[in-house]
Each structure stands twice: as structure tokens, then as C-alpha cells.
Design a protein around this nucleic acid. Structure first.
Lengths: 143, 143
DNA sequence: TCATAAATAGAAATGATTTCTATTTATACC
DNA sequence: GGTATAAATAGAAATCATTTCTATTTATGA
């Protein structure tokens, strides 16, 4: 059977048990080329599973995120959203705040990106978030 | 009197009333060269104001943020943090996840930034958030 | 088939943020 | 300076996404 085999291997490789719910979750995320909240995923999955806890969805999505399988989308409403991106390698995303669609970007510098995005998605850039996280010299020493 | 005059003008220009609490809030944020949560600001302000509601702090910080006076800092714990940056013009920040200090960055492309940051703050970049927000062609048309 | 650790359901707790209403205050105008 | 008015605030209460907890179920490897 189709992609389930791939998901199966994926979970195995991560050392996670292959449960029907995990497979379905991956399937839902991959089919949707948009970012979704845990609750939205939960609602979709409940069609197939009469008993499915929202915490299970939260737990699994977080798990997959920290293994790099799916990526978090930041949103100004501070809710969690996740996106399954099939593209590998370092790249960034253009995300539509309206329809939630996600587009892969090939360049990384924001100035250049704006032009690229206009061409690529024929869209409008309303804002961008560029924040570099790390440890300053002092803290890096202490830890 | 010192900087209060500047804050006074700042608030006036934004069409906001000049209240003692707003002035104090700005003062607290400017003195602290780190990003702070509303609750932290509240605790500091309560030293000077016996009666001060946490919602007031939230409201004012949000107000100042949307007027561009202070800037939001994204954090993986999804809490709100704000930083008063005296530097004008387009630039980004390096924020230490440990001590919360903020450094202005002069370049915008992440690859170059990593080198720059190493020089500038003698620190370690653990991750960066680069997300471009906007409206895709379809949604832009509809709205 | 079985033992075991991992995964899950479902209820309950958490806690940051927001909402609400009555009261207070800054401001503009006299 | 005195006053009307809209903005700002306090304090309590509500919200609600997310997390925690415990007992039960399930995938897995032997």
C-alpha cells in the first residue's frame, strides 16, 4: 500500500511506535498543503477515529516537530500551527495569513526574497519575522 | 525634566493620553536592555504604583507595539515579550534565550548574519526564525 | 503468546491573556 | 482654575489553548 509504507518507515526510524493514529495524522498533514492547528487536525481525524483525544494530537504533533518531520508556523495569535513540508534542505516559507497556503522559498535574504515572492506567488508581503536566537558570549560560557 | 519630556511628546504624537503609568512603563522598558514579559513589567511598576492592573500593562504594551514604539519578541514558549529598541531604521535582533539581552544587527541575510553575530556578540546562534507573512495572489485579489 | 514500555483517552488543571463594568483621570475648552 | 467628555484604569471574572494526570490500551520484540 501506498504512502503508508513510507510513514511506517519514517516513524520506525525515529524510534516511534507505528500506531494507526500516527499514520493517519501524517496523512492528514501531508494531504493538506496548508498549515493546520492541532484542533483542526483533531477534527479531521475524528472522522476516522471515534475515540481520539486532543492531547494525543498535541503530543504527536509536538513530537514530530521536534524530530524535524513537520515545522511550526509562527502566528501573531500565538496559536500553534504545523506544516508538513516535503521539501528537504535549508529553506524558508511564505505563508498566507488568509488561506494558510505555504510556498517554499529558495532564497534566504529578506530583501531579495520580497522580489522573489512577488514573482513566485504573485502575492503581497505584509511583514516578515526574522529573529536570530542563541546564546550571547556570557551565557554560552556559563552553560 | 529628563527623558520624561521625550516620552510625553511620544505619547502625544500617537494620540495617546499621557498618564503617569504609561510614562513609567516606557521608562521601565527603556532602562532594561532586555525583553520583558508584561507580568515582569507589571511587577516592576507595582513598586511605584500600589494599584496597577495587569490588564493595563498588557493593553499598553500592545498599544505601543502596534504603534511601532516597542517590538514583540517571539519565543518558543509562546509567551509575549517586548523590547524597547532605541535604534531606528530597518534592522533585526539577536536575542539571547538565556539572559534576554538584545543586540541590534546590521545585516539582514541570515547566512551572513551568523558570521556577523559571532563577531558582534561572541555568541552562538542556535536557531533563527525567518518567516515571510503576506497574502498570496488569490487572497490579495479577493480582499 | 506474552511481557513491557510506549501510547492513548478522558477528565481535570493550568495559566497567560482577555473581557467586562464601574470608577477614575487627562484633556480641551471655557 | 472649573468642567464636560472620552479615554484610561482597577479588579474581578472569564476565556480557552495547551498541558498534566491516571488508568487503560496497544505495538513490539522475544
Amino acid at each position: 500500500m501506498e504512502p503508508n509504507t513510507a510513514y511506517h518507515a519514517l516513524l520506525k526510524n525515529l524510534g516511534l511506535k507505528v500506531t494507526p493514529k500516527r499514520l493517519a495524522l501524517l496523512s492528514v498533514l501531508e494531504e493538506e498543503h496548508r498549515y493546520l492547528s492541532p484542533e483542526e487536525v483533531w477534527k479531521k481525524l475524528r472522522r476516522s477515529f471515534k475515540s481520539l483525544g486532543l492531547p494525543t494530537v498535541y503530543r504527536n504533533m509536538e513530537e514530530l516537530e521536534c524530530h524535524g518531520v513537520i515545522s511550526k508556523v509562527l502566528h501573531s495569535n500565538r496559536k500553534l500551527y504545523y506544516y508538513f513540508c516535503p521539501k528537504t534542505g535549508h529553506h524558508h516559507h511564505f505563508v498566507c495569513m488568509e488561506c494558510r497556503i505555504v510556498e517554499d522559498l529558495s532564497v534566504c535574504a529578506v530583501r531579495e526574497m520580497e522580489k522573489e515572492i512577488k514573482r513566485q506567488v504573485n502575492g503581497t508581503v505584509t511583514s516578515h519575522i526574522l529573529q536570530v536566537n542563541g546564546l550571547c558570549g556570557n551565557c554560552a560560557e556559563k552553560l
